[in-house]
Design a protein around this nucleic acid. Sequence first.
DNA 1: GGAATGACGATAA
DNA 2: ATTATCGCCATTC
Length: 104
Amino acid sequence: MADDDYAELVLTVVERIPPGRVMSYGAIAEYLGRGGPRQVGAVMSHYGGGVPWHRVVAANGRLVPGHEQEALRRHRQEGTPLKSDKVDMRRAVWWPEDDPAPLP
DNA sequence: GGAATGACGATAA
DNA sequence: ATTATCGCCATTC
């Protein structure tokens, strides 16, 4: 099934997000070039248990619904640019080509 | 097969 | 800044 592939792709990208940086659902979807923000969100909600899900935020900087407290705590821990209860996107938004991590 | 649903996004009021 | 609506897209009922 292709959707499992898609899920793995999403998870891979999420794992690639460096600490102190975040990526929006839409950004991930755009980067993958298929599906949409909601698909990414769906994958995260179901399969996102093994990746730094807190680094995935809504485009408006809102933290993950249902885990705001948790995500907020971790972000403070990692030094993510925060706006009180939201992420400072202007600084925190990250793009894969921004920081080409060496793939083994 | 059609309607409802959802860790979204952008815009309008 | 906050809330309300509409549009997107694939999955699920």
